[in-house]
């Protein structure tokens, strides 16, 4: 399970960097607990769309109802937890 979550976090970071065009950042530059919004990454609502697309299309999880669970988008850690939760059904 630990290996799985680490792998998911790495893939998440790679996909977010690629989708948001943050090529000047590397996977190691994004901490697992760094805030995605309102922190150093300075992501905005249009970037949130990109993250939803990554979750739906790259990780195959349905994001329906997530508007009431905004804490999921806090950090890479919370996103990875959500992906595991969704996959385990």
């Amino acid at each position: 399970m630990t290996e799985d979550i680490d792998q998911i976090k790495r893939e998440l970071k790679e996909n977010i960097i690629s989708a948001l065009g943050l090529e000047d950042l590397s996977v190691d530059d994004i901490g697992d607990d760094d805030p995605l919004f309102g922190g150093e990454l300075e992501l905005d609502s249009l970037d949130a769309v990109e993250i939803v697309v990554v979750l739906q299309r790259k990780f195959g999880v349905n994001t329906k109802g997530l508007e009431t669970r905004k804490e999921v988008f806090t950090s890479i850690n919370t996103l990875a937890q959500f992906i595991i939760e969704s996959r385990n059904g």
């Binding site: 919004f37 609502s45 949130a48 939803v52 739906q56 299309r57 997530l66 508007e67 905004k70």
Partner: peptide
Amino acid sequence: GEMHGAFEIATALCN
């Protein structure tokens, strides 16, 4: 709200 409905819009389009 902070995200201006971004999560809902993206989810709807992906679905």
